[in-house]
């Protein structure tokens, strides 16, 4: 029981404190690739600190939904973070919700965020929520099918069991179904975290923005919570990807040295994935909104192929 509580607190701290770093890392690498210096690795922390200390302006048209949204978003995203294994195969709350719960908790947060966008009454908010809900809806089948493929291989939707099943199978990531599912989830990751070519996190041009349009009216502590949640969501989805497909270094024992190695490997894997995302972002132009379904259709077919591969290629495919 005590160990359980410690692991909950530990993982909460890990998700809370580490997630802005990934955002910072992505930004820095992106800046370097564009031959800029970038703001440094601690900028997101400074931003959060600054925003939390500021006053805030609430639109006069808004209701309690607007103020409640950041809290719901923050709590759901953080809770999703507690359901996935990070440094050990056993996630603190894994028993209380598997991958379906993760997906639906994130959906709950998004539901409120979209309502928050509509609550302001400005057309930016509505535009953002409309696009966000659309893209997440058409990303959902690809996400679910890929997740199913992984869950079928492990015989469970509980992420700890999935990671457990993956540990110790060498060459597993070389099987086509795993690679295809990874590719599909990678596309979904880009769509869900609002990166180029789906959305541009750095834009404020109304024709192209999605996520930024929804949160245009937020300020001060509320904005801090939303930004923080976005970082956490990115970390949650990335962790899902790296730990399900490359479960190397998930420590089964609890020895301090083992933990240390696990943490180091975990950070390393996340940074590699972040690098991949940044490379995609830098190498591509943003897609027109109505080209996004094409990308997601490809993701869907990739995950369908992943599923078919589990029996298409006989024993070694799965």
């Amino acid at each position: 029981m005590i160990a359980q509580i410690i692991s909950v607190i530990g993982q909460t701290a890990l998700v809370l404190l580490f997630s802005p770093l990934i955002t910072a890392f992505s930004r820095t690498i992106k800046a370097r690739l564009q031959t800029r210096r970038g703001p440094g690795l601690f900028q997101p922390y400074r931003d959060l600190h600054k925003l939390l200390r500021k006053g805030m302006v609430i639109p006069e048209t808004a209701s309690w939904i607007f103020t409640a949204t950041p809290y719901v978003l923050f709590a759901t995203t953080l809770l999703a973070g507690l359901l996935i294994p990070t440094i050990a195969t056993q996630a603190p709350l894994s028993l209380f919700g598997g991958v379906l719960a993760v997906v639906y908790l994130l959906a709950l947060g998004r539901f409120f965020l979209a309502l928050g966008g509509l609550d302001t009454g400005s057309s930016f908010g509505g535009l953002g929520s409309s696009r966000e809900m659309t893209i997440s809806a058409i990303a959902e089948p690809a996400l679910m099918l890929a997740v199913f493929t992984v869950a079928l291989g492990a015989g469970s939707t509980n992420l700890s069991s999935v990671a457990q099943a993956a540990v110790g199978q060498s060459w597993r990531f070389l099987s086509p179904s795993q690679m295809l599912a990874f590719a599909a989830l990678f596309i979904v990751l880009i769509a869900e975290t609002g990166r180029i070519p789906v959305d541009n996190p750095a834009t404020h041009l109304e024709l192209t923005m999605i996520h930024e349009a929804m949160i245009l009216e937020y300020s001060g502590p509320c904005l801090a919570l939303i930004e923080w949640s976005a970082s956490m969501k990115q970390m949650v989805l990335m962790t899902l990807l790296v730990n399900v497909f490359f479960p190397y270094g998930l420590s089964a024992d609890g020895s301090p040295l083992g933990m240390l190695i696990s943490v180091a490997l975990f950070v390393f894997k996340l940074l590699i994935l972040a690098l991949a995302v940044v490379l995609v972002e830098t190498g591509n132009a943003k897609l027109r909104l109505f080209r996004v379904p094409e990308l997601l259709a490809v993701a869907f077919v990739l995950s369908a192929l992943a599923l078919i591969s589990t029996f298409l290629f006989g024993v070694h495919g799965g």
């Binding site: 998004r110 539901f111 979209a114 509509l118 809900m133 959902e140 089948p141 679910m144 199913f148």
Partner: peptide, 29 residues
């Protein structure tokens, strides 16, 4: 599993629809 994926699509579209139904009906001006 394909039915499951389409169930996911259905649920996500339903969420979009009720953001609309609640947001347009009850929120803003």
């Amino acid at each position: 599993p394909v039915a499951g994926a389409l169930l996911a699509l259905t649920a996500a579209l339903a969420a979009a629809c009720f953001v609309k139904a609640f947001g347009i009906t009850f929120l803003a001006l």
